[in-house]
């Protein structure tokens, strides 16, 4: 009786161990097949872009490409800055101060990812109800600080990591 039981136990153990270790192996093989679709090393290395901003007039903006996405760089006039800062946070679906969206001391420069946070379209400049940007795809309105004011987009347009290399050059990424 006990001999029989032992036999069964050993068999069960063998099969369980085989299955378990086999499953671990299958998992280890599947991972490379998934990971190969992630950004490769060359893509990861192209993470920074330097932009010359010396020729941008106040009130105007340029669009540059960073990681395959548009970056809006706008030199705002003092009226536009004042307008952005006059907005009450309670009126914002995604409350954020304008001061938090720019580098202090360089308040005229708004650098943001020009991608609508709804479904990824590129909003049009100087359009919409809030003197900022308007996304034509599904009607999201952004203000002069790039904050969402009306429409289906859930959050403000994203501010990428950037820094001023000197007064005429910024480095994005």
């Amino acid at each position: 009786m006990s001999k029989e039981e032992k036999k069964v136990n050993r068999r069960d153990f063998l099969f369980t161990a085989s299955y378990t270790i086999g499953a671990v192996g299958v998992g280890a093989v599947i991972w490379p097949m998934i990971d190969q679709m992630n950004p490769d090393k060359a893509q990861q290395a192209l993470a920074t872009t330097e932009v010359d901003i010396s020729s941008i007039e106040p009130g105007k903006s340029i669009t540059v490409l960073w990681r395959g996405k548009p970056i809006f760089i706008k030199k705002r006039t003092s009226e536009e800055i004042a307008e952005a800062r006059a907005v009450k946070l309670d009126d914002l679906p995604d409350p954020q101060k304008d001061e938090d969206r720019v580098k202090s001391g360089k308040d005229e420069w708004l650098v943001m990812l020009g991608v609508c946070t709804h479904l990824g379209c590129v909003p049009l400049k100087d359009k919409g109800d809030f003197n900022g940007w308007f996304c034509p795809c599904h009607g999201s309105h952004y203000d002069v600080s790039g904050r969402i004011r009306k429409g289906p987009a859930p959050t403000n347009m994203e501010i990428p990591k950037f820094e001023f290399v000197d007064s005429n050059t910024i480095k994005i990424g």
Binding site: L14, F15, A17, S18, I21, G22, G25
Partner: peptide
């Protein structure tokens, strides 16, 4: 090393 381990286990299972 992994394959040798699994091969051994499968071999014993097969014998069983």
């Amino acid at each position: 090393i992994y394959l040798i381990l699994l091969t051994t286990l499968v071999y014993l299972s097969m014998k069983k």
